[in-house]
């Protein structure tokens, strides 16, 4: 078992920069919470092409959510790539140390 843990202790990514994770976290929180606040949209006016507000507003959030997630995708893939590139650089300043990989977002 010791072989197993030793080899796979090698970090897969360098340390994270907080900003992209914070921005993505805020955007995702908006994307989850706002469509669930029913009082915002539980009324019929204004109609759009004969469709009550309640119905078209919720459908409008489909493209809005897609756009928010799209922004997060760009931010996260870019940060992921940067963290990997840090490790590829030979003898970086201690980036292979214990704190190098925290497994990513959410900590």
């Amino acid at each position: 078992m010791s072989t197993l843990s030793n080899t796979h202790d090698t970090p897969t990514r360098g340390p994270a920069k907080p900003l992209p994770y914070i921005i993505s976290g805020v955007l995702l929180a908006i994307a989850v919470v706002v469509p669930l606040v029913v009082p915002i949209y539980s009324h019929a006016e204004p109609h759009l092409g004969g469709i009550p507000f309640f119905y078209w507003y919720q459908m409008l959030w489909v493209p809005i959510d897609a756009a928010l997630i799209g922004i997060c995708y760009v931010l996260m893939t870019r940060e992921d790539r940067r963290r990997r590139d840090v490790l590829k650089r030979p003898a970086g300043r201690g980036s292979r140390a214990d704190n190098a990989d925290d497994g990513g977002e959410g900590r």
């Binding site: 989850v32 469509p35 669930l36 919720q58 459908m59 959030w61 489909v62 959510d65 897609a66 997630i69």
Partner: peptide
């Protein structure tokens, strides 16, 4: 509809 919207951030 809101179900399949908030699904994707999760």
């Amino acid at each position: 509809v809101p179900y399949t919207i908030v699904l994707y951030p999760i």
